[in-house]
């Protein structure tokens, strides 16, 4: 019995529990897939499910990684990792990341998507959101800039 178990592990690559758990997980997913297969929009759901992974792993991640690389190249080494005092790189990274995240999360309002359903639900338009996002982003950069200047001044004085 023990030998059989060891041979199973060697062939499969993990214990029987591992297989059982995964089969359970796929059973739920397959059941949901079969249930939704009859829906006219099933293809779209699948597309969005897989598309979400592709969009994150092969679009969003390369984009922000490239942006960070460009920023690091632009900010010279001495400023990115100063021996003492604040890092200019990080004081640019943080507001940039925050502004990008706000854009991503609140994108429908900022880009005025779904105007009709929005109007039907709220009785309003999406006019103010782009300006608000720009202002919020500007405020984040400004706050970070002021903090950087203050920390530099303090580091020099100390």
């Amino acid at each position: 019995m023990r030998d059989l178990r060891a041979r199973f592990r060697a062939a499969y690559g993990a214990s029987g529990w591992h297989l059982l758990l995964l089969v359970g997980c796929f059973a739920v997913a397959a059941w949901v897939a079969l249930r939704l297969a009859g829906e006219a929009t099933a293809g779209r759901m699948l597309l969005w499910f897989v598309g979400a992974v592709v969009a994150h792993d092969l679009v969003l991640f390369p984009m922000y990684a490239a942006a960070d690389w460009a920023l690091r190249t632009a900010v010279r080494e001495r400023r990115a990792r100063p021996a003492s005092g604040p890092s200019l790189l990080n004081h640019l990274r943080v507001p940039a990341l925050a502004a990008a995240l706000l854009f991503l999360v609140y994108l429908p309002g900022i880009l005025r998507q779904g105007r009709e359903t929005y109007l039907a639900a709220t009785g309003q338009d999406q006019q103010p959101f782009l300006a608000r996002w720009l202002l919020a982003s500007g405020a984040l950069f400004l706050a970070s800039g002021i903090r950087y200047a203050f920390r530099r001044w303090r580091a020099r004085r100390g």
Partner: peptide, 23 residues
Amino acid sequence: VGGILFEIATGLLNIQYAYLFGF
């Protein structure tokens, strides 16, 4: 990963009334 990103995307679009996904 698909599950969490799908839930986040559909949820965010729903609370902002942008039914871009068409299902």
